[in-house]
Amino acid sequence: MRTPEAARVDPSPATETDPPLLTADGVTRWYGHRLGCRDVAFMLWPGEVLGIVGESGSGKTTLLDCLSGRLSPTAGHVVYRGEDGDAVDIFALPESRRRLLQRTEWGIVRQNPRDGLRMGVSAGANIGERLMAAGWRHYGDIRGSADEWLQRVEIDGDRIDDRPVTFSGGMQQRLQIARNLVTRPRLVFMDEPTGGLDVSVQARLLDLLRGLVAEFGLAAVIVTHDLAVVRLLAHRLMVMQGGAVVESGLTDQVLDDPQHPYTQLLVSSVLQA
């Protein structure tokens, strides 16, 4: 029994035809004979948060490193549409351009804040450094912006001259987020942003991230093994096993009605609190 409307199904409504921000196509990475990730393809649009889940060794971090230009794929392409509107294959760019992107239009939040911060300089300098890389020169503006961002990530302004070694793990992670977001990037890559933090500290960080993502219309790719994190932050989800994407879709659909045996195992293995 078909309705008259049946002939007029519109697969891609006009409002959803704007170009993607990031396109991965056949992204594959081998480490010698060992597979990192294989044939990963997806598109990400401005304002979308994509979660990538899977157990340790499933290839999530390898994929994230390829997407963020820090690791060359063995095969495949990663295409980014920059602020200037040009779509570029990031691995066809000269190293200097790729580094500039990483410091300005992109943010990269590492699991261990020690890898993403400069531990020997002050909190203010950690934030200011990104601004200087983006061309800021006026000391007062830089310090003012650093102070504003410390407040945004709920770090007391009077800690601005303290070095991050004196901060707790949660504060260090919030500082790393401030350092990454201060240049208003369009795309942020996060690797286990809440890993290694206490549960109460995690909730605060998640809430902060959720607010910032919504406020700035950020696009983000978040790798995690924590399904609660993606349920809260990610619009879409990819599930990886053995280097390949085995299932993808809307986050709540993948978690509530998983189709692939591995996804079902992953979802059913979570302890209910």
Binding site: V9, D10, P11, S12, P13, A14, E16, H235, R236, G249
Partner: peptide, 16 residues
Amino acid sequence: DGAMVDIASASPRTML
């Protein structure tokens, strides 16, 4: 938005 969309086959982006 004035047209029929098939939820059973829509892309995640359309669903959002």
